[in-house]
Structures are given as structure tokens and as C-alpha cells.
Design a protein around this nucleic acid. Structure first.
Lengths: 173, 173
DNA sequence: AGCAGAATGTTACCCACTAACATTTTCACC
DNA sequence: GGTGAAAATGTTAGTGGGTAACATTCTGCT
């Protein structure tokens, strides 16, 4: 179904493709589509790594300021991951980058990861407010970096992520 | 219509209130509602200050790193604003804070402000990528701060904003 | 072959939102 | 004070995303 959907999105764009069309080309009912995917947007935006990131943030020293701690945690979580199939990921993110509704859905879709980071920071002694602010800022930077990366050719994803976090952490003014 | 909507949201929640109900209680047709408000969410999330913020960011020294520049711009823009009717604003934001769909819509709703900040940063010599990342991080922090503020009692809004930006700028680790 | 449970289909519905066209209200000008 | 144009509102009808309840077909296992 995902493959079929990506084809149609490439042909007619995200908004120009209805769930009915996807289901039809997949030889299936609209109802069946919604049994496999909770929403149309979930074809493109997901939140796969939250527990890993939570643990990684917790592992960083509680002496760091919350931004640094969250950023370091994400960097280290990233290194533990198997490198994803970049081309697939890039295709998906490109569609997200070009569709305003999906950009918004993306930040909604990382709410779970954000919550996990907030919890980890709080457990490390950071106040609730600071934790929420730091987590949302770091996740926003990360999401923006992913979208920007998707629009470029021939760049390493890990590198783009590091560069994004550096904008927050290693500020050279 | 706004007043009526807020009543209904208070009674049945945002998701539990349909546009039809709002229109009916306002003595008006659903169609008329959509002529006044582009979307249901626009009753609660808006983006009123983008040009002001863009100008303020541009006014800050281009020698600063992008995060500092954006943050200082927002602080200064804030001081120029007439203090809003805090109670109203708080009520609205509380509903947003409690409704996941609206939280996502809020970040979508500040896309214009974000774009304006990005442009200002680029004009100051920051690269496209860095500018996009810094702007999204700062706006995310700001939005989070607004939502957290709305859930507290008796706090100055300006103070909450300053504290949020300090998490990004004056990091004490 | 026969059965249980999973996957799929059918129908019917709700809600946000849009388009096209008709109707009423408002208000400035004669 | 009437008139006519413009603005606001109403009507009808439709699209697309998403859900609920119930019926049907497949699947795999014994």
C-alpha cells in the first residue's frame, strides 16, 4: 500500500491524492486502508525511535544544561541506529517538506519523542518548564534539519543532524 | 461568534464542539461561519505579529549567532507590543494546550512568523540551513512557553517569554 | 473437511470545508 | 423617503477524511 501511495503522491501530489484512490489502486477498500494506517498522514510521518532517544538522553550527564543534554542524547541515539534506507526516507520527507499540512503533522507526530525527552530531562533535575522548552526547541531543530536534508542531494543524514544541533549548542557569534 | 465558540469549547471541549453547533448558537449558518473564519482552528490560533518580529530581528546586530539574534529580536518586538488582554489569551491558549490537534495547528500557524525570521536572518548573512533551524527552534520554544504560561496562574507573559528564550541563549550548565 | 479467528467488505454515518447560485440587508445617494 | 448597488447571508449540493456496526470471505490448523 505504501508503495502505491508514494506513486500516486509523486503523480498528483499529496493533497491531490485521495485515500480512495490509494485504496483502489492497491485493490482494496477505503475501510481496509484505515485498518492498516490510522490516518493518511501516517503514510509519511512517523515517530519510530522515541524509547531509544529517551534512554540516550537519560544517559547524558545531568550536569549539562538541558539543551546540551538533549542534543547529546540525540546524537548518541543516532549513532546506535542502523542507517536507514536513505533514498526511501528522502522521498517521503520531500513530500512532507512540500506539503504545509504535513509539516504541521510532523511536529504533531514527534510529540511522543518530545514527551520522552521532557521526562528524561525532568528526571535529571531540570524544571518542567525548562524541560518542555528545551525539548520542543531541539525537536523542532531536528525536524527542520530532516526536511532541509531531504531537499538536498548527496548529503549524509547524520551530518545534517549534527550540524542542526550545533546551531543550538555550539553557537559561535 | 468567538465568544459563543469559547462558551461551547468550555462546555464540551474543542473536539466535542462542531462548527454547526457554534454557528447555530450564534444564530447563523455554517456557511457564514466559514466566511468569517477560514478554519475552526483559526478561532484559537493566529499569527498576528509577524511583520513586527521580522523587522525587530533585522534590527539586531548581524554579528550575533542566529539563535541570539532571533531571540533578541523577539524580546524587543514583545516590548513594543501593547500588553494583550491576558485573561482572554490565557483562556484560548489553555484550550490549545489541552487539544493535541490544536498544538500541531499552532506550529503550523506560526509558519509565517518563522518564514519572516528566516528571511531576516538570511539577509544578515546567515546560511539558509542555519537560519531555518534557528528560526524553528526559537519559535518552538516560544510556542511551548506560551502554552506552559497559559496553564499557570498569575504569571507575567513577558516574563515567561524571557525565561523561555533564556533556555536557548543563556545556557548555564 | 471443518472450524476459529483474522482480514476484508458493506453500509451508513459525522464533520470540516468548498462551490455556485439565490436571497436578504445595508447604506449611500438622489 | 425611495432606489439601486454592494455586502452579507442563506441554500443546496458535494468532496474528502475518518468512524461504527455488522456481514462476509480467507487463512491456517487439526
Amino acid at each position: 500500500m505504501l508503495t502505491v501511495a508514494l506513486e500516486l503522491f509523486a503523480e498528483h501530489g499529496y493533497d491531490g491524492t485521495s485515500v480512495g484512490q490509494i485504496a483502489a489502486r492497491a485493490g482494496v477498500t477505503e475501510m481496509t486502508f484505515f485498518r492498516h494506517f490510522p490516518t493518511k498522514a501516517s503514510l509519511l510521518v512517523g515517530d519510530p525511535y522515541d524509547p531509544l532517544i529517551g534512554a540516550a538522553v537519560r544517559r547524558e550527564s545531568a550536569d549539562l544544561d538541558p539543551i546540551s543534554r538533549a542534543a547529546r542524547g540525540i546524537r548518541s541515539a543516532w549513532q546506535q541506529l542502523p542507517p536507514p534506507a536513505s533514498i526511501e526516507v528522502r522521498m517521503r520527507l520531500r513530500i512532507v517538506a512540500q506539503t504545509p499540512a504535513l509539516r504541521a503533522a510532523m511536529t504533531g507526530g514527534t510529540a511522543a519523542t518530545e514527551a520522552v525527552i521532557v521526562e528524561a530531562l525532568i528526571d535529571g533535575g531540570t524544571g518542567q518548564r525548562e524541560a518542555a522548552i528545551a525539548a520542543s526547541a531541539v525537536m523542532a531543530a531536528l525536524n527542520t534539519a530532516l526536511l532541509e536534508w531531504s531537499l538536498a542531494d548527496d548529503e549524509e543524514l547524520g551530518q545534517a543532524i549534527n550540524a542542526a544541533l550545533d546551531v543550538l549548542v555550539d553557537r559561535h557569534g
